[in-house]
Amino acid sequence: MQLYHHPYSMDSQKVRLVLEEKGVDYTSYHVNPLTGKNMNASFFRMNPSAKLPVFQNGSHVIFRAIDIVQYIDRLTASLSGEAASVSSETAEWIQKIENWNPKIFTLAHTPPKYRTFISKFIRRVIITRMSESPDLASMYHIKLREAYETEDKLKNLDGIKQSEDELCSILDEAESQLEKTGYLAGDDYTLADSMFIPLLVRVSLLNLDEEYINTRPKVLEYYNLVKKRPSYKVVIGKYFNGWRKYRTLYKTACFLLVRNTLRRY
């Protein structure tokens, strides 16, 4: 089993948390979307959406996080001789979390100068790859158009407000649920928690804990609880706890600055 992912990717975090919780052995490949590695022809041919993660088991390739998570759940259940069982509460939470797209929220809360720099760099990467692989030009053109469309969406304040409201709605429901149960879909850790934790991590990475997490006591208590799990420490803590967060960010920033200065896209 092979997983193409990156620590920054929320969907990658969801899948890796499930893999770690299930104790599944897999080969890990880092593909950094902030440096345009997901636009390299070899990866792009495998997944023209250029999105992370990508999960491969033999000839079977899956792209969407929710599909990967469900596949892993069925596979591990089958290997253990059990029937895959996801409660209606777990399935409902998984779908609810999956329906929220963090992209606009993330970019809207990223300092404009950094956001603009990365956006320009990625567009140059796409144009360069387009010239290197003319047979993929039409698909690269779609990604280039998407990049410009994203910039237009960030000018739409109503769209940004809607994304924030959707996040608040999920967190408010989680607060209500966690007043009754220890975890999101009951008293035991489930797939729903593996899907939900990266959402809290993204909020924390953007330094928005005070507004979105700390104002919800049960969510904060839950967040502190799941941080102690071995899966969290491997998937997230290794990269984002304390000073590690800045090491991860600075490493990428230095790479981008050097490549941009040398005009090597």
Results as ranks from 00 to 15, higher is better:
183 Y>L: 03
162 Q>T: 08
221 E>F: 09
120 K>A: 12
81 G>N: 04
54 V>K: 12
88 S>R: 11
264 R>P: 00
226 V>C: 12
53 P>Y: 13
162 Q>M: 07
28 S>L: 11
196 F>E: 04
191 L>N: 07
132 E>F: 06
56 Q>D: 01
231 S>L: 05
92 E>S: 15
203 V>A: 12
88 S>P: 00
225 L>D: 08
113 K>H: 13
76 T>H: 05
165 D>V: 00
61 V>H: 05
136 L>S: 04
38 N>G: 10
145 R>Q: 15
151 E>T: 03
39 M>C: 08
70 Q>W: 09
39 M>Q: 10
165 D>H: 09
85 S>A: 11
108 A>H: 09
239 Y>M: 10
2 Q>W: 03
88 S>D: 12
39 M>V: 00
182 G>C: 07
44 F>E: 08
53 P>K: 12
156 N>R: 08
78 S>I: 00
172 D>V: 03
233 K>N: 07
222 Y>T: 01
181 T>A: 14
22 K>L: 14
254 C>S: 03
257 L>I: 06
14 K>F: 10
182 G>F: 03
176 S>A: 11
82 E>Y: 02
118 I>S: 13
145 R>K: 15
160 I>S: 06
112 P>H: 11
243 W>P: 04
193 D>Q: 05
100 W>G: 00
3 L>G: 08
109 H>C: 06
100 W>A: 04
147 A>W: 06
53 P>Q: 10
175 E>G: 08
135 D>G: 02
254 C>W: 08
76 T>R: 08
80 S>L: 08
239 Y>T: 04
185 A>L: 07
24 V>E: 13
141 H>T: 08
158 D>W: 05
244 R>V: 00
197 I>R: 13
249 L>P: 00
161 K>A: 15
226 V>N: 11
25 D>P: 02
165 D>R: 13
42 S>F: 07
94 I>K: 10
32 N>S: 07
19 L>D: 02
242 G>W: 04
246 Y>D: 04
219 V>Y: 12
210 E>F: 08
46 M>S: 07
134 P>V: 04
132 E>C: 04
222 Y>E: 06
87 S>N: 09
260 N>M: 05
250 Y>Q: 01
212 Y>R: 00
132 E>K: 15
44 F>N: 07
34 L>Q: 06
